[in-house]
Design a protein around this nucleic acid. Structure first.
Lengths: 339, 339
DNA sequence: CTGAAAGCGCTTACAG
DNA sequence: CTGAAAGCGCTTACAG
């Protein structure tokens, strides 16, 4: 089987390879008859343009890099799935690049990634979306980038945002409406900007109900199951324990449930628990967790799509869009029993 | 900032670009002095060879594709992590490609992936590792491939195997040694070859203890949490319920735990549960699951490493290696209480 | 040990 | 509307 290149097609169709290239790229200035001939040749020979050759001629790789450092495997998978779908639509490839936010030389790491793999653009997922040095570096290097779920704004990038404060407000309100007045909170990792955003929503809801935040039942977690466990032990053993716990993600909420079981506190009868993210674990434990679902796939899909459009047309400069979260009610929450 | 190419380096070092290329590729026949000069130029100019140009000249992409269709996000993440590490070692890129085993045109899908992305090799993860049509197709197309955790053998490929039968035997034995005699089993997805392998280990252990397999407490799951739930309902409501359940993966085992809670069957006092895989959920639920851990990262790392070596040297034809699983004991298992 | 030439499969100017 | 030439940044033969 011969290798079929643009030359074979040109010969077969009886035109120059430039004309083939024109048809390939949907350029104008090709007579319909010629176009047809060439397209027939494509089919006949089962021609697939060589992306590497295209890349070299264009000085482009047609590769988008995806940066992440996230303890949640399900989150990563969802990010990848959305990014992949967008890449496929535009005939790009996706290069996944897990790396540590606090790694010694994040910038060097990314710089090396860029020059080694010749990425055409890069999509930043939390916590990188709000990493000022990294963002500044990309800006300076003029590498197109898009940010998924950033909290900060930016004057010239693509930002696909969620509204974590609003969602946290909403789920806290759910607890308040169920009659809970003493609601503990477990914060996420301080490096993630959503951590403060979610806390802000919690505080706002309490405030509107004239409840003061009691820092004794606010714990510093870091999104890991383990940190949730530690936090839960502290909170549930408090002299004046809460009747509800809002953990900043579902892993930590699952850990609260574990500690509650160990302490023979029944959920939701004696303790309501809510999480955040609607990770698989939220429905894989019993009772299932009331939580907030965010459209992570769609957000990433949009981010990568806009990024590629920016690369291809340089039309887009700024693009903002906000995707709301959705409250999911399961069995881990119940009305406060009046004594 | 000028683009620095092999030409700039050649000029800077005062040699031909062929010589630069030789140094780059660690070819012999370069005098130490020349080599030093060129290497100094690399450093000085911060030269990074353009992989796309290399690819075109070599007619290679330096990309390895990773095929998967697996419901477990944590498994996928582990596979990716191992594959990525191996790729980085050899300066390859990894292209992830989720796709459906039962998709209408799996072969077309993969064929299109291969010709579009010009993969240099492909790593098959379960359930693709044992998909005969796909394997035959790759063989016929002469695409180098490696298989992770296949059950079947193969006359000319790289196969990185686990020993699921042995591990299942071992964990069943644990239950037997705890005094359990009536042990239910929940099978995995029929498309995954490990499903039968794990079942075989279970049967073997029972046989050695002179216990007959009772198909009434063997359920057909499919690795999903949901299927675990259905299976558990059926099994635990049996007229003569088991004192232990062996689920073929941890998601299903977690579902058994949920159903047990709902039926007020306490674990492990009244029911022991074991899973398989040591997925994160195994330690994120309470009680934690006794299970089998497999070195998925190392397995995939080895598979991809050997694959790349095969591509680069064509020395390797066949490579087999088996990685044993490891029993992890947590709180979901206890000795059977004698009445 | 070193280099000039041709080529990988495409595209970008430039002509006509 | 179409094509011949030169080039993208590297490598593979081939000379010397």
């Amino acid at each position: 089987m011969e290798k079929v290149t643009i030359n074979s097609v040109a010969k077969y169709a009886g035109v120059s390879k430039k004309t083939v290239s024109r048809v390939l790229n949907n350029e104008p200035n090709v007579s319909p008859a010629t176009r047809e001939k060439v397209e027939a040749a494509f089919k006949e020979l089962d021609y697939r343009p060589n992306p590497i050759a295209r890349g070299l001629a264009h000085n482009r790789s047609f590769i988008i890099g995806c940066l992440y450092d996230n303890p949640s495997k399900s989150y990563i998978t969802r990010v990848q799935s959305g990014a992949l779908e967008a890449c496929q639509k535009y005939n790009y490839n996706l290069l996944i690049h897990p790396c540590e936010l606090r790694g010694e030389e994040l910038i060097d790491n990314v710089a090396s990634l860029l020059s080694t793999s010749r990425l055409d653009g890069i999509v930043l997922t939390p916590p990188f979306s709000d990493q000022p040095e990294l963002v500044a570096f990309l800006k300076q290097k003029q590498i197109p980038y898009a940010r998924v779920a950033p909290v900060t704004l930016d004057d010239e990038s693509i930002s696909i945002r969620s509204n974590d404060t609003q969602a946290a407000y909403q789920i806290t309100n759910l607890l308040l409406e169920l009659g809970h007045k003493r609601i503990a909170f477990i914060k996420g990792h301080p490096d993630h900007s959503v951590t403060e955003a979610r806390f802000a929503g919690y505080k706002q809801a309490l405030k509107e109900h004239q409840i003061d935040v009691d820092l004794e039942i606010v714990a510093e977690g870091n999104f890991s199951y383990h940190s949730g466990e530690d936090s839960a032990r502290r909170i549930l053993n408090h002299a004046k324990p809460p009747s509800a716990v809002f953990a900043s993600n579902d892993y930590m909420a699952a850990a609260v449930l574990k500690v509650a079981s160990q302490l023979s506190i029944s959920v939701p009868e004696q303790l309501s628990i809510v999480g955040f993210d609607n990770a698989p674990i939220a429905r894989h434990i019993w009772p299932g967790l009331t939580t907030i679902a965010q459209p992570v796939e769609e957000m990433t899909y949009t981010a990568v799509s806009k990024l590629v459009e920016k690369i291809n047309t340089s039309d887009i400069d700024i693009y903002y869009e906000t995707f709301p979260g959705k409250l999911i009610t399961r069995e881990s929450t119940a009305a406060l029993k009046t004594k």
